[in-house]
Simulated scan of single mutants.
Amino acid sequence: MERTFVMIKPDAVQRKLIGEIVQRIERKGLKLVAAKLMTVPQSLAETHYAEHKERPFYNSLISFITSAPVFAMVLEGEDAVNISRHIIGATNPSEASLGTIRGDLGLTVGRNVVHGSDSVESAEREIALWFDESEISSYTLPEDVWVYE
């Protein structure tokens, strides 16, 4: 099973969308194996978004992600990275398909509701940044037999 990192951003937390977003993820068949509501420390935000440091939006991104709580999650399932990216939708909500989280709930790139790892390598790096291995659960659900062959 593959793992991925998904974060419900401050805009979605403030809009009380955690339950709806988690429900969409779970309904698809991905399993929630770790989660926490937290205010992101500056240092974690800077490390997480280090690849964007030279971009003009970096400072506003750091300010935004540290402005209010986020809901950080580790999801597990076959092809979890790609499946979660399809559920999330395009980065720009105006280009995201209806039925995706961003397509239904987001309006602008700067307030696009959710972050999701874009590769297995990114997922591994991001999970290690946000969670200790002891915070990640391993368990079997009875419906797993109905999700996977």
Rank of each mutant, 00 (worst) to 15 (best):
M7F: 05
V109G: 03
Y58I: 00
R111A: 08
G110H: 14
A35F: 01
N112S: 07
Q42T: 08
P142S: 13
K53P: 14
Y139I: 08
E78L: 09
A68I: 05
P69I: 08
N59D: 12
F64K: 13
D79Y: 10
L37Q: 03
E54N: 13
E121N: 13
A90G: 04
E135F: 00
R111T: 07
P10S: 06
L17S: 12
D118R: 14
F5R: 06
V114F: 10
I88H: 10
I127F: 03
M1P: 02
G99L: 07
I101P: 07
A123S: 04
V120Y: 09
L75A: 00
L141A: 08
L17Q: 13
E149M: 06
G110S: 13
Q14W: 04
L75G: 09
D104K: 14
K36D: 05
N82Y: 13
T140N: 06
S60G: 10
V145C: 12
L61T: 11
A80I: 02
E121H: 12
S119T: 12
A45W: 15
G89T: 03
E78A: 14
E124R: 15
K36E: 01
K16N: 14
T4Q: 04
E133T: 09
E143F: 15
Y58P: 07
I21W: 14
T4D: 02
E95P: 09
K31I: 02
L129G: 04
T66K: 01
F57G: 10
H115T: 01
E46M: 11
L129W: 07
N82M: 10
E20Y: 07
T100F: 10
D118I: 10
V145I: 13
M38Q: 12
Q23H: 13
E149N: 14
R85A: 07
D104H: 04
G106T: 13
L37E: 02
P69T: 09
E149P: 15
H115C: 07
D132N: 15
F71V: 12
V113F: 07
V22H: 01
L37T: 11
A50Q: 12
H115G: 00
A123V: 01
A80G: 04
L141W: 13
E149Q: 15
E133F: 06
V40W: 05
S134N: 04
A123I: 08
D104P: 08
M7D: 08
V81L: 06
G103S: 15
S122F: 08
V33F: 02
S63W: 00
K16C: 14
V40L: 14
I62L: 09
F64M: 10
R15W: 04
R3H: 11
V109S: 05
L129H: 10
G99D: 09
R15E: 07
P41V: 15
G19S: 15
S97A: 13
M1H: 03
V147T: 14
I65S: 08
T4G: 05
V109R: 11
K31N: 05
E76D: 07
E121Q: 13
E121K: 15
L32T: 00
P69S: 12
G19E: 03
I21K: 08
E2Y: 03
A123Y: 07
I136H: 02
A35D: 01
V120P: 00
G103K: 08
E95H: 12
G77L: 06
F5H: 06
I8K: 03
R24D: 03
W130Y: 09
R125C: 01
G19H: 04
